[in-house]
Design a protein around this nucleic acid. Structure first.
Lengths: 202, 202
DNA sequence: TGAGTTTTAGTTCGATCGTTCTAGAATGCA
DNA sequence: TGCATTCTAGAACGATCGAACTAAAACTCA
């Protein structure tokens, strides 16, 4: 029909994620986005609507490529390993995050969600999905004995979600390996339940 | 010497806290502050320096009146009760927080701290103090048998700090009683250790 | 090839940002 | 009472914000 766009939408979204992730919504200007993505203002508004809409697309792009992908990766493992592997990835990401950007979703939870019901719902929905992944893994683990039954699966899943949020926040302010590992280690030990003789080395 | 100021510094700081707490640093304009505090722009700049300095004063004011005060309140209780009471206050605050402002310090951790080394240090230092409170309580509890020794006191303290951050984040996006209580309940049960017969009701 | 469409690049807009300045009112001390 | 000082109120500053507009370039399809 007409002239094809010269930019790749995926590439632009990647750049937008980088922008918003590092600086947050308010602190990122449209001019920042124009410089980083390489497309012009007109193209940006034409292709995505406005700044808010671009942020939403970027956030969804991030969630799909980072969180959903992680759940898919871990879901195929045995129940306890799925959770342990999930947190191992989080720790590795957090400790290797040189500029301490944290998790874009958690950032969004405190940045845009409180002032925008639409974003609040989006963020909440993702957290529900993460909690559901924990719950599935825990229920499976409780069935095969890998995870303690001393707490309800629902509460354990809620707890893990809380711990996950906590690690993501701490990593931004106190990115110390001992601190983050300590938080997670304790949570994983809790899942195993009261230490059983067969888990201790001779 | 000269004309005394007509405003009360404490009152202005309270109003500034209210402003920054609800909207964050970037989203709060100096005009917002002028309207809410009731003082004029000139008075604001004369008395506090600039927006950043006022935010710092407001944050310190908040920490002193909210976090430090809570630690003092709980510290006088028996070890386990100190922690349980601490989290009970957090839950009560979070669930009664109609506009979901969360904790101003946690907000600061993701809002101003990442882009300002000075603020990062301030926030980190407060978190160290909270962790130290947890550690003191846990060590005391481990000594008198109220708290499990199945995990090191250091890791348990780190874990509680993580859980605290997590609750504060979740409360802003999913302020559901069952969720927040589930997160905390599990953490407190963990402190008690493997369920002992004397803690179960007949 | 030429009409039609959508891209591009850059300018421009009004609003608002944090900050400063100008006046004048109010106070304490000599 | 009068001078020095510090307050108040509000206008004004340049800079930057998100967004829209203009015009030329690039492409498709008939």
């Amino acid at each position: 029909m007409a002239r094809p766009r010269e930019f790749d939408e995926e590439t632009v979204l990647d750049a937008a994620v980088r922008c918003f992730w590092r600086r947050g919504y308010e602190a990122t200007s449209v001019r920042d986005l124009i410089d980083t993505t390489g497309i012009t203002g007109a193209s940006l508004y034409n292709a995505f609507g406005d700044k808010r809409a671009l942020y939403q697309r970027a956030l969804e792009h991030y969630v799909e490529g980072s969180i959903s992908a992680r759940i898919r990766r871990c879901e195929s493992l045995p129940p306890y390993d799925a959770i342990a592997s999930f947190f191992a990835e989080i720790l590795s990401r957090s400790l290797g995050d040189r500029d301490h950007k944290g998790c874009m979703l958690v950032n969004a939870a405190l940045d845009v969600a409180p002032n925008d019901p639409g974003f609040q719902e989006i963020v909440a929905a993702v957290l529900v999905r993460v909690e559901a992944f924990f719950l599935r893994s825990i229920e499976a683990g409780q069935s095969n004995g890998a995870i303690t039954k001393s707490q309800s699966a629902e509460n354990l899943a809620r707890h893990l979600l809380g711990v996950l949020m906590g690690v993501r926040v701490l990593a931004r302010v106190r990115p110390e390996r001992a601190l983050l590992e300590g938080v997670v280690e304790t949570a994983l030990a809790l899942l195993k339940g009261p230490s059983r003789p067969d888990t201790a080395k001779p």
